[in-house]
Amino acid sequence: MKILRILTLLLLSFSVIARMSADELLQVADKFRSPYQYAQLDIRIDDFKNGTIKKSRNYKVYHQDGQSLVDVLDGADKGNRVLLSNKGMYVAPKRSSRAVRITPIQRLLGQASYGDLAGLKFSKNYTPSIIEEKDDVTVLELIAKKSSATYHKIILSITNDNQRPVDAKAYLVSGKLYKQMQYDVEGELLKTITYKGKNKNKKTIMTFISVKDKKIPKRLLTSRGMRNAIR
């Protein structure tokens, strides 16, 4: 009787998991990027060529309500700010009072685009559907909800046991494969994302150094407020 009860419970739990919708699967996968509703992330991007680091940059990303404000911490662009808001993506150079609107797919460093750094949560900008279920992974097709999303389509693989992201392929509107991503998770959080384009000798690694709970004023998430002091 006891064994029967345990078996019944196990069957029920598997069926609950099996019934998770594509949206729910994607939201769980997004939590590996940041568990907080309002988050401050320290991120480093290393650009590799033939296995050697050519350039590295550090960033501070403030993410909330599906929007992100990025502070460039070093390099010639130190002091620049990047904003991914509901109204679009902007770059504000440090010596300019004017923010310039850009598209998220524009290159930031190496194989990483501005949208890769600022657009943390897929569930905000993409509509998922399950296209394949294998023994250990589920494959989701993510279609951009808006033209302001970084990519038109992403094919994302997540593990069945805890919805941890494994790898992804990003496609343009033309259907062309633009880049591939590989995810490395440590514990409950993403450790690195590796971006690769057509050139096999080049890759870019985004490392998540730390994440903490932090809320910033909403006025900073506008093209005019993005240059103000963050406190």
């Binding site: 009072s97 004017r98 004023p217 909403k218 006025r219 005019r224 103000n228």
Partner: peptide, 19 residues
């Protein structure tokens, strides 16, 4: 200085360039 009244409302005062 910018004073945040609430999440949607703020007041900026002083000397600055409004672009």
């Amino acid at each position: 200085y910018i004073a945040d009244v609430n999440d949607n409302l703020s007041v900026q005062f002083g000397k600055f360039s409004e672009n």
